[in-house]
Simulated assay, not measured.
Amino acid sequence: MRNNILHSIVLTFIVIFSVQAQKDRKFKAHTIAFYNVENLFDTINDTTKLDERSPIMEMKFNREEVYEKKVKNMARVISEIGADISKNTPAIIGLAEVENRQVVDDLANDSALLHKDYGVVHFDSPDARGIDVALMYQKSLFRPLSTSNHELKIYDDITRKRIYTRDQLLVSGELEGDLIHIIVNHWPSRRGGEARSRPKRVAAAKLNKRIIDSLQAIDPYAKIFTMGDLNDDPTNASVKDVLKAEKDKEDVKLKGIYNPMESFFKQGLGSNAYRDAWSLFDQIMITKPLLEKDFSSFRFFKAGIFNKQYLTNKKGRYKGYPLRSFADGGFTNGFSDHFPVYVIVIKEVL
């Protein structure tokens, strides 16, 4: 692996790598990704939630046309994440800012993804605006064994009224026979300021840690991916103090967590931008068993931010920022205000 000489051979839906070490070794690779798809809402007014505040519902004309284009743009991006290595669309992808199960089904059924036969896991969250998280997976590669949603109960520090936010989604299943666990997150926003809103994300991190601890109590060697839009950077207290995520693989102990995104952040890279500053709110973290050198089962190979040029603004005050779908009260024909992130896992083929 250290020589980094990879020769890819496409076999149907997977790619097999030859790695020149003491002898040639062959690996298969899959992409596991996360994408905040920025207000993927339908055009139907749901009176049980505040979806009328979504950008598409605020538009007076061409809602259906905009929705169809928005879905198509999201599907195009998803179809390309990690494909330069895996030669495939993501085996598994977590999503944030989806309104309901139907919009995820529409995404999975877009022409760019339909032939991959994606399955969907989704639960309605109590979020006031109706924003949910979801998971899409290729049925030929991943088989869910159990799914559950975990409610985050937080309260306003002044009124003591409950703040309704997104659940955390846990999906356990087999990736080509290997048991893995995926947690999809969308932690509370920084509305009201970072400092004032920090306790909400710390609470979200504590819930995430409880889920991870419960899995590791059953199996200390559980392969866990926790992913999402955390509304915090890799160096914030929620990630560093609560999850205790490490930047360097060598520092990860049994039951510990590795955060490959921290190195990107230290290099000045981000997944979203605001007021001339980059943040890396979108992260995928993994547990130690995914770092082992025995590639008889899937292990971590590399991580990335999918920030292709077509996903960025080319001019104006937001030049270089992610090219979002909605701005100034209209549809830009863009993509999202976040870049997707991903990890590649590989397994030796004997």
Rank of each mutant, 00 (worst) to 15 (best):
I9S: 13
V10E: 13
F13I: 09
I16P: 01
F17T: 02
S18I: 13
Q22D: 15
R25F: 11
T31I: 05
V37N: 09
E38Q: 15
D42H: 13
I44H: 06
D46W: 06
T48H: 09
D51E: 04
D51C: 03
D51T: 02
E52Q: 12
M57G: 00
R63N: 15
K69V: 09
K69R: 13
V71A: 09
V71Y: 07
M74L: 14
M74K: 09
A83H: 12
N88A: 11
G94M: 03
V98G: 07
Q102P: 03
V104H: 06
V104A: 05
A112Y: 15
K116Y: 15
V120E: 12
A128W: 09
R129C: 10
R129A: 09
G130M: 04
I131P: 10
V133P: 08
Y137R: 07
Q138L: 07
Q138I: 11
K139D: 06
P144Y: 01
S146M: 11
L152C: 06
L152M: 06
L169P: 01
L170A: 00
V171K: 00
S172R: 03
G173M: 04
E176H: 04
H181S: 14
R190D: 01
G192L: 00
A195M: 10
R196N: 06
S197L: 00
R198G: 06
R201K: 10
V202R: 09
K206V: 10
L207Q: 14
R210D: 14
I212H: 08
I212W: 09
Y221A: 10
I224P: 11
D233K: 02
N236D: 15
A237W: 10
A237P: 12
A237Q: 12
D241G: 08
V242D: 13
V242S: 12
K244W: 05
K244M: 12
K247V: 08
D248C: 06
L254T: 14
L254R: 14
K255Y: 11
Y258W: 04
N259Y: 03
E262N: 06
S263Y: 05
F264P: 06
F265I: 03
Q267G: 04
N272D: 15
N272F: 07
A273T: 11
I286D: 00
L290M: 04
L290K: 00
L291R: 00
E292S: 10
K293F: 06
S296W: 08
R299L: 08
F300M: 07
F301H: 11
T312H: 12
N313F: 10
Y318D: 04
G320K: 06
L323G: 00
F326Y: 15
A327V: 08
G334K: 00
F335W: 07
S336Y: 01
F339E: 11
Y342T: 07
V349R: 00
